[in-house]
Amino acid sequence: MSGNGLDHDGHGRGLGSVLSGLAVAVGCVLFLGGFAWGAVQYKPYTVPTQSMSPTVKAGDRVLAQRISGGDVRRGDVVVFQDDAWGNVPMVKRVVGIGGDRVACCGKDGRLTVNGTPVDEPYLHGTNPASGTPFDAKVPAGQVFLLGDDRLVSLDSRVHMEDAAHGSVPLSAVSARVDAIAWPMGGMLARPSGFEALPGGTSQPGPLKLVVGAVVAGAVLILAGAAYGPIASLARRRRVRAAVPAGR
């Protein structure tokens, strides 16, 4: 009986050790792989001004997915850098792409794209959607950019006299903001107001999958590392319970 018990216990310890080691190994792959994936896909950026309030406030730390110009859609909050705008990284919202006629304001005070009024619930209490009327044709390969706080934002409206009518080239766009990392604000919602326009809106990047991989990896590493001490404690308790009282 005792021999069989020892064999069974030894087999259990061996299998448990293998499984705990496997959990740690898989956890390391997920944890480190998630961080590597995130580093390739995303870059952190601190928003310097209040122009995108209330969506993104001054001082917020955001995670922006690296994208090419061909991935840009209307409604995206993008990071860009252009000589005509001071050649410093800036964050604005894309409201028009090449070929669009962007104007404000329609009879109901809304922004219009190709004559279609657009709902903009993200605006900072602005009605009409711009205190400065404008009407611009966006050249091919360019985007028209506005801040969400239209009262303070210095955006495409102040560059209307430029040859590109206030727009910037797609090549100037380097990333799309996916989430506010600090203070923790979560994922940025894709605006529904542009969905009916040709091309629709963009889909969120893989940030949730990246975070999921890192969290799952951490859990597996902790669980695998904890197996040894927990199993040892359980064996000691079984030994003490098996010793007759008084011995």
Rank of each mutant, 00 (worst) to 15 (best):
H11N: 13
G14Q: 12
S17L: 15
G21N: 05
G21C: 08
G27Q: 11
F31G: 01
F31W: 15
G33A: 03
G34A: 10
W37D: 09
G38Q: 01
V40D: 13
T46N: 00
M52E: 04
S53P: 05
L63S: 06
Q65F: 01
G69L: 11
G69A: 10
G70H: 11
D71V: 12
G75W: 06
D76F: 07
D83Q: 11
V94H: 03
V94E: 00
V95S: 05
G98E: 06
G99W: 09
D100Q: 01
A103G: 03
C104G: 03
C105P: 00
G115T: 02
N127R: 12
A129S: 12
G131R: 08
F134A: 10
Q142W: 01
L146M: 14
R150F: 07
L154Y: 08
A164T: 13
H165T: 07
G166L: 05
L170M: 02
L170Q: 02
S171F: 05
S171T: 12
A172L: 02
A175D: 08
R176N: 12
V177T: 02
A179E: 03
W182F: 15
M184L: 13
G185K: 09
G186F: 10
F194E: 00
E195D: 11
L197G: 10
G199E: 08
P206S: 14
V211H: 10
A213G: 05
A216I: 06
G217Y: 07
A218L: 15
A223E: 10
A225Y: 04
A226F: 06
G228T: 12
A231Y: 13
R237F: 07
R240N: 06
A241R: 00
A242H: 02
R247Q: 01
